[in-house]
Amino acid sequence: MSDSDYVYVVYIRASAQSVWDALTDGRSTAAFWYGRTNESGWRKGDTVIFRRPDGGIDFSGEVFEADPPHRLSHGFLHPAPGPMHDEGDTRVTYDIVEVGGGAVRLTMTHSGFVEGSIIRPGVARGWPVILSGLKSLLETGEPLPDRLDLDHVVECDPA
């Protein structure tokens, strides 16, 4: 048995390429993802590292699929020893599809949770903040305020 996938769908007035770039250019995520930056070549087999603002590694994984600008799938493993690390690798997959009118449908599927996962409730709180912030950034040029992120970090990642 395993816990169900967490799926979040959001429509964004932006090109697929802009969504792809915001997720993968390394710096943009800092504006909407609790301050995290990322490092990867974003080719299949590459390593992905997401860093906290203090430089520590938040999570890392392997790129399983990369078909820019439409599909990206990578592993998600907390490196610090503890119960979240012990749950093993989960998987984050983005599908970005043009729907006309200058908009795209972004579907984020977080999968691979063990039964009774403690990671899943945390990411279920985090993804709506992160992907709402991504949409705001791309549509208005402004991220959501930092304080929102900080409030939710406490709730999302008690470690």
């Binding site: 709402s132 705001s136 549509e139 208005t140």
Partner: peptide, 18 residues
């Protein structure tokens, strides 16, 4: 998802999401 996305776009940009 469409409804929440459209409400957000309308509030934040003043333009509807088609």
């Amino acid at each position: 998802s469409k409804i929440l996305s459209a409400l957000k776009t309308l509030c934040e940009t003043g333009r509807p999401l088609p």
